[in-house]
Nucleic acid binder design. Structure first.
Length: 235
DNA sequence: TCATTAAATTGTT
DNA sequence: AACAATTTAATGA
């Protein structure tokens, strides 16, 4: 009963929250009005599940604030892929498009604010708005690129490289425009996301800082050289 | 607004 | 995994 539970607590987005929703910008006034009318926002607590594998897709979700973890685990086996979803990130369009069931679990790594539009509105926008379609196409394309990159890194297995690429992914300016140059994420959360211990993440972060790729800040990481992070090779 | 205290996060062993 | 040090957030005068 994940969604009904959330729906009960859902509220309308504030003006400030609307400004953090990237795809609203391109819409014409009519389309925008329809989208905004259907937009729901909910505050979720740490550890809370937003959607589960196998549930029918009812919403297209976006992160307004906080941090989510997307775990792509099959019903049978172990988790396959983890992805963090920072502010500005929207996900689930593939599932919603095909009117299928969710293929992953979404869990809040910390207190977050999550927005959603219903499937009907999503399709209404897809059927008539060119800007919306552009956004979705770009989204799918960038995500595919990330997915391929992630496979290569996982094969290498070097912890520093994994942290570097994990960070580069979270700082993706197209997928996650809400992040900016400072990502609010603790080393604990980063470890949980990438699959490393907190102290190994700490070590890796210092190595990356020494290479002037990032700056470690309390409760977050600032990126100094995004390209350098992407190109980071195991040493 | 400032000072004090509690909580969260980081760095180190 | 445990501990100490540091930073932020919360509280109340």
């Amino acid at each position: 009963m994940v969604v009904p539970h959330l729906l009960r607590r859902a509220r309308h987005p504030t003006e400030v929250e609307l400004m953090d929703i990237p795809w609203l910008i391109g819409l014409d006034p009519q389309e925008r009005a329809v989208a905004v009318a259907d937009l729901k926002v909910v505050n979720v607590a740490t550890g809370e599940l937003l959607c589960r594998v196998g549930r029918p897709a009812t919403f297209w979700f976006g992160v307004v604030d906080g941090l989510l973890k997307m775990s792509n685990d099959s019903a049978l086996g172990m988790p396959i892929t983890f992805t963090g979803v920072p502010p500005g990130g929207w996900f689930g369009e593939g599932t919603v498009l095909k009117r299928e069931v969710y293929r992953y679990n979404i869990q809040a790594l910390r207190k977050s604010v999550v927005a959603g539009v219903g499937v009907a509105t999503f399709h209404w926008l897809i059927d008539r708005s060119i800007p919306f379609n552009r956004f979705i196409t770009q989204q799918l394309n960038e995500r595919l690129g990330q997915f391929i990159a992630a496979r290569e890194i996982d094969r290498l297995g070097d912890p520093d490289a994994r942290v570097a690429h994990g960070l580069a992914a979270l700082f993706h300016p197209v997928l996650y425009p809400g992040v900016g140059s400072l990502l609010r994420i603790t080393q604990q959360e980063l470890g949980y996301l990438i699959g490393l211990s907190r102290q190994r993440v700490n070590e890796a972060l210092h190595a990356l800082q020494a290479q002037a790729l990032i700056r470690i800040e309390y409760g977050g990481v600032r990126v100094l050289d995004l390209d350098g992070l992407r190109r980071h090779l195991p040493r």
